[in-house]
């Protein structure tokens, strides 16, 4: 993500809540502060409709971080 930002591409990471700790650890290791949106876990077993709904629910939050 830091690489994409460095190339001038606004970037937001989307992950499930189970990865909040992992994201924190990785950010600490690399000394970065990435823009992240966390959605409810799990996603692996979601249907396409459920995924679309999740996307709709978090769309505004993602856009907000992209344009920051």
């Amino acid at each position: 993500m830091a690489e994409l930002e460095a190339r001038g591409i606004p970037t937001v990471g989307v992950a499930t809540t189970e990865f909040i700790e992992g994201a924190k650890a990785q950010a600490k290791s690399l000394g970065t502060d990435p823009a992240l949106v966390f959605i409810p876990h799990p996603v692996q077993d979601r249907t396409n409709d459920e995924l679309r709904q999740l996307a709709d629910e978090h769309f505004d939050a993602i856009v907000k971080l992209l344009v920051k």
Binding site: E18, F19, E21, G22, A25, Q26, S29
Partner: peptide, 10 residues
């Protein structure tokens, strides 16, 4: 590498 379980190792 600082790769540890329940941190970056998920």
């Amino acid at each position: 590498g600082e790769g540890r379980p329940q941190e970056v190792d998920r």
